[in-house]
Design a protein around this nucleic acid. Sequence first.
DNA 1: CCAGCAGCCTATCAATCGATAGGCTGAGCA
DNA 2: TGCTCAGCCTATCGATTGATAGGCTGCTGG
Lengths: 226, 226
Amino acid sequence: MTRTQKVGSPPTTELILREAARLFSSKGFHGTSTREIADAVGIRQPSLFHHFPSKHAIAEALFQYDYDRSPGLQLRPELPDATPPVRLFQITRREVLVELTSAYDLRGLYLSALMDDPEFAHWRATYEQSLSAAGDLIREGIKTGDFVDKDPTMAVEILDALVNQAVRWAPRHRDLSLPDEAAEMALRLVIKRPSRIPAIRREADRLLVAAGTPWPEEIALATQTR
Amino acid sequence: MTRTQKVGSPPTTELILREAARLFSSKGFHGTSTREIADAVGIRQPSLFHHFPSKHAIAEALFQYDYDRSPGLQLRPELPDATPPVRLFQITRREVLVELTSAYDLRGLYLSALMDDPEFAHWRATYEQSLSAAGDLIREGIKTGDFVDKDPTMAVEILDALVNQAVRWAPRHRDLSLPDEAAEMALRLVIKRPSRIPAIRREADRLLVAAGTPWPEEIALATQTR
DNA sequence: CCAGCAGCCTATCAATCGATAGGCTGAGCA
DNA sequence: TGCTCAGCCTATCGATTGATAGGCTGCTGG
């Protein structure tokens, strides 16, 4: 960065990601022009291409940002040795927290069919793998008798929709209780005995402390690009 | 219709709606060009404008089609005198059935932020009213002690996501058991005693028969435009 | 039988799209 | 001091967009 940068103002690349994400979520990727993004940032449209080689690359960076922060997408679920209900609870509240604390408004990536574009097929595949892993978890819970014996595919798709909905909340709520509440509802979808939910939550908290990665007491907003 | 029409082939206006809906759902409204629609139908691009005055009008017709078939969007919920759990069950399975038996693939209308476009603000308002009514139903159920006392807004948004998910199922499943299963899951989200669900379902069936509008035994696919 | 017109066509429009070429400027460094 | 180059600019590209103008054809109702 050689050009003078206004004190306290984020670097331009960061601003581009922020404004592009906001516009993608309100008008969609295809409905947003590079000129609109540039206007929102306060630069001219061709200047965008000094920071990203193409419009697709901007969305790509946002996908990557989300991936880097999401254990679920990385297929590295937390508490792999816990019981299915505890794992489902933890996975759900983690994914909701990730979306809730995102530095960017990622709704545009997941609320449209953007992942179905051939250019983003890689992210679609990653996403499907993550859903498939969730399906395995549900099936395991049915086997152990913790979950009701309903179609696991439908359950997964509703859980997916629940987390996607959390992406919509992100700009509105900044409340740390939200991930826990959303995860409780997710659990209620499939669990046989809802009365156990408080114990499951305590167990998740306990295991996280034991693992040296306690669940955050207060919310911390992410800011860095990667 | 004066021009010769191939026997057994739907009228062109119908074909346009069908193909446009399919393309909107896979590439988004803004990501679909009128030439793509015309190619899929088998006519030239300007010929589209003899059936619809604009590209927006095609999406408008699809919104209207969905509205006309959805009691929820019309704010005319079924079984208004039943208990909150029975009404929630019935509303959910009805909306899922409506999406499941739609003649068109309506995912493109609701899975993107299309309703946020100023041209479709009217549908956004209608949609929000329908969600608001669902919130009132949840609150009533909390008051009667049937539902758990959790944030009704979050519950409604998850129910909304669940029905939207059903829109995604539409092209895949054509199984009449699906609406009932989806509605059971919706009920599990908020109900205090899940063991009551079978009785709630029987009660809904009974009330529908009493009202002279029994729940369909087998699926009937909609075809007419309006 | 023929006038009207629905339905489709070709040709073409202005606007907008994402992207490129090349020039200016000023901070950082030798 | 003077070279380098990141960062932004203006000007402009070809492609594609949604939409219009106007002509041809053949069914249909009077």
